[in-house]
Amino acid sequence: MADEKEIKWTGVKDMPPMAVSLGSMRVNKTGNWRNLRPVIDYEKCIYCFICWKFCPEPSIDIEAAQISERVDKKPVINLNYCKGCGICAEECPVKCIEMVKEEI
């Protein structure tokens, strides 16, 4: 796995020869671009993970959770990177993701 690095170079002489991330996205959180936040209603969720598949970032994580005998994981929005595009809410077959306004 790439290191969690912030940009450490000082100039042309010690930087890589191309725009290459050295794991800087770990520290470079980009979720603050978002103005709508997806909220999953786990009561209605059918755990199909279509949202996970469609998230373009991808910022829906799959976390272990014993939901039922058959289902042992759930989708969790990673708000560090979610841009609030609403694709997950659009694609969810049971419409259990609500986009709520971010307040400062």
């Binding site: 790439a2 940009i7 100039g11 930087m15 890589p16 191309m18 725009a19 290459v20 991330s21």
Partner: peptide, 28 residues
């Protein structure tokens, strides 16, 4: 190649680069 697409050592290439470093990449 020092930097290449390699799933064992993942990197993102050519990502958005702000004015604070784009200029240096052009100089390179």
């Amino acid at each position: 190649m020092e930097y290449k697409l390699d799933w064992k050592n993942p990197h993102a290439f050519g990502g958005l680069t702000k004015p604070d470093w784009y200029y240096e990449l052009r100089y390179q």
